[in-house]
Every structure is written in C-alpha cells, then in structure tokens.
Design a protein around this nucleic acid. Structure first.
Lengths: 108, 108
DNA sequence: GACGTATATCGTAAATATGCGATAAAGTCA
DNA sequence: TGACTTTATCGCATATTTACGATATACGTC
C-alpha cells in the first residue's frame, strides 16, 4: 500500500506539481527571496538568516538546485548560490499558463 | 527532532508555501484541470478520471477545499465540486508577485 | 603536513503525506 | 421500511519530508 502513483498522471500535471513542490516549504521561499535581494550570490549567510541548522539548510538548497531554480558554484572554501533567472521565468510561465487555463476554462 | 519549524518564518513565505503545497501533487492538478474543463461541477466522475481509489480522491478534494481553491456542495446523494475562480485568481496573484519580485530583484 | 573553516552527506528520529479498504452517513427509489 | 448509491471519514500501512548531529570532504592558512 501507499505505493507511489504519481507517475501515472499526465506529464504536464507531474511537471506543475514538481515546481509547486519545490516551493512548498517556507524555508525554500525565504531562500529564493534572499538570493533575489542580492543579485550577488550568498553562501552560508543563508544559514544565519534561517531558523534551521546548517545541514537542514543544505538539504533545502539541494532541493532547489535539483529543480534548477538555483545554481551553486564553489568559491574557495565556501560555495555560493544564485538564482537561475531563466529557469525561474520558465517555472512562472508554466504556473501562469496553468492558472490562466484553469480560470478561463480554455484548456488545450 | 523533526519538530515543525514552519511557523517560524515570515507569514508571507508561509502563505506562498501553503498555496504551492496544495498544488504539489499531480492528482490535485488533474482535479483542478478537470473542474476547469466543465464549468459545471463534477462529483464522483473525478474518481473515474484518476488512477486512485474513491477514498484517496476524497482526501485530495478535501485538501483543495481547505485552501479554498474548490468548493463543494451537496446535490442529492452526490456532492459536486467547482472551482472558486476568485480564490484561484488570488493564488495566481500571490505566486506571480513572488516570482516577479524574485526575477526582477525588486523586493519590498 | 597540521589545523581551522565551510559545506555536503550520512544516519537516524519524528512528522507528515499518500493510499487503500472498511465503515459510517445521507440520500434515492422501489 | 429496506435495498441501493454516493461520498466522507476512520484506521492502518507505507513512503516521503523535515530536521538534526556527526562525520566526511575540500579548501585555505600557518
């Protein structure tokens, strides 16, 4: 029981759900906002800003990286993150289209 | 451990995360799409459309109802659901503002 | 090379989500 | 009333997420 049935849905719906899942925790929203504030990337400063441990923040960063919303690069002993604006725009586009179709009732 | 720290974040971020969470499962996306297709509400037909049991679908419907995206009404022995367009627009607005702020870097 | 710093990953515990069958509740119809 | 239909909810099993400390890794500095 409790088998995963998520892959039995339309790829479109799976994609939207994956984007939404990446945004479904306030820590990840806060991280995105923090990176948006300074277009220069931050690193462990993010840990200071959140009420979470270093390892937990690292996990959230990884989740955002996995969906491509942020990118990480190594800068000496520390690693810096920044938003992938192109990917962010793509996500917004996907969600916007979904919402607009749902609201207007005009679906493909 | 694994205590819930979600309420230690900005209310803004919590709100966005809650909207995203409601959309974070393909079944719920499919339900919204189905309701958008026919502006007339459906009921147990939704169960037929999804690869899930009746009880599981009922749970997903409840989750969408809890965030206000859909509304349910009783029609004889069956219950009908329909989109709350106003609430949907509000959700889209919230997400759009968040995305736009993040992309442009112009934050309040 | 030895030490300190920063970060990712591992292991684990707890919480939450997902999914189902069984059952309850509420309605319809003979 | 009794049989049937439809849906919500309960109880439970499993999967996933969240969170942390401990540890490993990688880098810079002395």
């Amino acid at each position: 029981m409790a088998q995963n049935k998520k892959n039995q849905f339309d790829q479109q719906d799976i994609d939207i759900a994956l984007i939404a899942k990446a945004l479904s925790h306030p820590a990840r929203i806060a991280i995105i906002r923090a990176l948006a504030r300074r277009n220069t990337c931050i690193c462990g400063e993010i840990v200071q800003m959140l009420p979470l441990s270093q390892s937990t923040v690292s996990q959230h960063l990884k989740e955002l990286k996995d969906v491509g919303i942020i990118r990480g690069s190594i800068d000496g002993p520390r690693s810096c993150y920044c938003l992938d604006h192109q990917r962010l725009s793509w996500c917004m586009q996907k969600l916007s289209v979904f919402f607009n179709e749902s609201i207007t009732g005009i679906l493909p």
